[in-house]
């Protein structure tokens, strides 16, 4: 290093060092190139386009609802993983774990609350997001397919909430899921009580959902696995497609 470096401040030294440069591949001068590089060279930001029409940045246009849905999903992932440390998906333990969370685990109550209300928030915001996409006609060509992906995401969001609802193993959960999965038994053709049934009690839709004919230990385990892994993974895949397609379909919709 030359003597000059002695005059540099610590910050300047740090920012011209190899470590820093290996992480941030742009400098901070306010130039167009840099404003582009910031986004391009960061995996979390690279979903963004470099430039975007003015109206697309207005909250008035998107209501920020797609973003809030995504954010709520992230909150659910984080609080959900923390809850998993304390929860056993067994008939003996599940309910006690809830009590344990509420009365014993440090910050357990607020953790559980945030996971529950976050789920409500996510359902609520995805409903509003769909409304705004419809009202702005953002499903019209070339964005038709992304609307379809969106509908799948809506369905999956509801499924995540539904499977989570059983896990506290209280009366509300038990009977809501009983009512819900009894619908499975009413499925035409594939449900034992449905019209034109070709199924029995032991191989119909409800049986597949519950791993039994009534809500019990198998159902709890099934719902748990669906809730913490299976559905969220599918959601992640479809979200990736959703976000990628927004860009590929020409970015956020704008008046022609």
């Amino acid at each position: 290093m030359s003597e000059k470096s002695e005059k540099k401040s610590f910050k300047q030294k740090m920012m011209s060092g190899q470590i820093w440069k290996s992480i941030w591949r742009h400098d901070f001068e306010d130039t167009g190139v840099n404003r582009g590089k910031v986004l391009r060279s960061n995996v979390f930001l690279h979903l963004h386009p470099i430039r975007v029409p003015k109206h697309a940045m207005k909250i008035r246009f998107t209501w920020c609802m797609g973003g809030i849905t995504f954010f709520a999903f992230l909150v659910e992932c984080i609080t959900g993983i923390l809850l998993m440390f304390y929860y056993h998906p067994t008939v003996d333990m599940a309910y006690l774990d809830m009590k344990y969370l509420m009365f014993d685990v440090p910050f357990g109550q607020i953790l559980r609350n945030m996971h529950r209300w976050g789920a409500h928030l996510m359902v609520f915001s995805v409903m509003l997001h769909m409304l705004r996409v419809f009202l702005t006609a953002s499903y019209k060509p070339p964005r038709e397919f992304n609307w379809v992906v969106g509908v799948l995401l809506l369905t999956l969001t509801l499924l995540m909430s539904f499977t989570g609802y059983l896990l506290p193993w209280d009366q509300l959960a038990f009977w809501a899921i009983t009512v819900g999965t009894n619908m499975g038994a009413a499925t035409p053709f594939l449900g034992v009580e449905g019209p034109f049934s070709i199924a029995t009690k032991f191989n119909d839709v409800r049986f597949v959902l519950l791993g039994g004919t009534t809500v019990g230990a198998n159902a709890l385990l099934r719902f748990y696995v669906l809730h913490v892994i299976a559905v969220p993974v599918v959601v992640c895949v479809f979200m990736a497609i959703h976000f990628w397609r927004i860009r590929k379909d020409g970015g956020i919709s704008r008046p022609l």
Binding site: Y95, M98, K99, M102, Q109, I110, R112, N113, M114, H115, R116, W117, P168, W169, D170, Q171, L172, A173, F174, V215
Partner: peptide, 12 residues
């Protein structure tokens, strides 16, 4: 979440 607790009924 501070103001309102998630409901929990009796054990199933």
């Amino acid at each position: 979440s501070l103001g309102m607790d998630a409901p929990l009924g009796e054990i199933a």
